[in-house]
Each structure stands twice: as C-alpha cells, then as structure tokens.
Design a protein around this nucleic acid. Structure first.
Lengths: 141, 141
DNA sequence: CGTAATTAAATTGTGTACAATTTAATTTTA
DNA sequence: TAAAATTAAATTGTACACAATTTAATTACG
C-alpha cells in the first residue's frame, strides 16, 4: 500500500485504508439507490430482521444514538423506514421498514456480487480475511 | 462479530467494524498525546520523512485536501507542524515538523507495542492479515 | 410509596471523509 | 506570447463517528 511508512504503522494503517477502499468501491452502486454505506448497513440489518430499536441496531453495527438518530431521520425523510416510539416503553424508538424500504431490497440484491466483481475478489480471499479478523476479534472476549 | 447479518454482508462489514475497533483501541493512547488517529497518521508520515506537500501526504494516506487542510491547520494550532507556501511554486504548501512535533515522536514511540498488548495481538496475526490485504489490494493495479 | 439509579434516545460539539466547486498559480499549446 | 488546460490547496456542503451531556421514562430499593 505504501513503502514509506514504517512497519509498526503498517500494522494497522492497511486495515484502515482497506476499509475506506471498500466503502469507495461500494459508492457508485450505493449512489444508484441513494444510500450511504452506513445507511446501507442499517437497511441490511432491517431486511434481515424488520422492526428493531435504535439500541439493537447500534449493538449490531457498533454505532451509538449520536450517529444513528440523525442517520435514521434521513432514512425516514427518504420514506425507507418509520420511527415510532413504543407505547409500552416510551424511551424506546422502533425502527420499521416502510413498503418502499422493503422494495429497495430487490434493487440492492445484486450489490454484493457487483462489489466482488468491481474489486476483483475471489470468495476464498474474503473467507480467509474474515477468518483472520474473526480469530483476532475473538481473542478479546 | 454478529450472527444476524447475512453472508453477503459479512463479506465487508467485518473489515469496516474491525478498522473502527482498532481506532477505538488507539484512542486512550492517542488521547494521552492529544492526537486523533488521522492526525497520528500524518505525524507518522512526517516522522518517517519530514517536509512534504499536502498532496504527498494525501497520496500516502489516501486523503484529499478537503480532509487534510483543516486537519493540518489543527496540527499547526497545536504547534506540531508549520504550513509554508512554496516560494518556487506558490500553489504548493509544504508541511514541516516543528521542534515540538519532532519531540512528540519519542512519546509516541511506545504506542504500537501498547496497541498490540491492548488488542492482545501476536505479530504473526498481523503479518497474516497484512499479507491477505496486500494480496487483495494488489489485484487491482 | 417515593426517591435514587438506570436506561434509551436525543442533543451538542469536535473531527474526520469526500464530492464538488472555487481560487490562484503554473504549464501547454495554438 | 496569450488563451486554454492543468494543477494544488482551500472552501463549501453533506454525512458519518463518537464523547459527553441532557431529557424523559422506567426500574430498583430503602
């Protein structure tokens, strides 16, 4: 990635740079459905399991309400989700897919394959990468 | 990292989440020297090779002037770097370490080892991770 | 029961990220 | 050489990311 940075830096910079590179590769595909990458992640979680609280989304995506509240308001403005305060516990806000939000899943369905083509990736590379990250992440439990 | 996200998403989300996790692990160490992670990256590049243009820094860190200009102004406010417009080509701004900026390197020297301890990482894990990322990144050249 | 502690979102403030545009300087080229 | 094209930073605007605080609601407990 870069020769001039010393080894101790190369330890973590490549991951940081690679994550940004992936998001940049997603950009044109996500632009087509007018989502940012974090918005796409939220939609993915909701497509997998509709109706979740802000905290539940945050737990899965490692994001707090300071990030999610404005992001979810933007998704609401686009009529992709609705934000409803729970009647049984008024502290909780439930995030639910709208019809439009559900329908977007079809358009988004081809994105993962397109990304792999765009990045010229093999399934085996990704599996290997995932395996190592999982291995490292699991060390701190 | 999370079981509820489907496979196609897990392809890239783990890298995104892992990069954020690393930056969060850096935070307490960087707080101690009052740098953010991107600011630390800029200082690392300058410690490696002092005096670089905004474009050179951006090329190495994959950041544009929209990100770097305000960041460098903050480093200048902290008296860690100086920003000087080139006399031979007035379009270019040279970023140079101040004495204080150079001295900070000593304090920062222990950070990489501390990070590895904090994350409970082995050198071999990182080498493996780096190897795969390099392999994938090199596919697109 | 009523107050204290906890919890869930929202808010506030700082600092990236990046696209798009602007400004100013330098090169190209007709 | 003068206009056109290019280049380097800076600026503008939108959208995260996260710490810290605030607000409101619920639960715990003396």
């Amino acid at each position: 990635m870069n020769e001039q940075l010393n080894l101790s830096q190369q330890v973590c910079f490549p991951i940081y740079a690679f994550a940004k590179e992936i998001i940049n590769q997603y950009r044109p595909m996500l632009d087509a459905i007018e989502l940012t990458y974090p918005q796409y992640l939220v939609m993915m979680v909701l497509w997998e399991h509709d109706s979740q609280t802000v905290n539940q989304l945050g737990g899965k995506l490692h994001l707090d309400s300071g990030t999610l509240t404005p992001l979810l308001k933007r998704l609401e403005t686009k009529s992709l989700v609705s934000r409803t305060r729970s009647t049984t516990d008024e502290r909780i806000v439930n995030i639910t897919l709208t019809q439009k939000g559900k329908e977007l899943q079809t358009q988004a369905a081809t994105i993962p394959q397109k990304l792999m083509q765009a990045m010229n990736l093999e399934m085996e590379d990704l599996e290997e990468l995932k395996r190592i990250i999982t291995k490292i992440s699991n060390k701190n439990k």
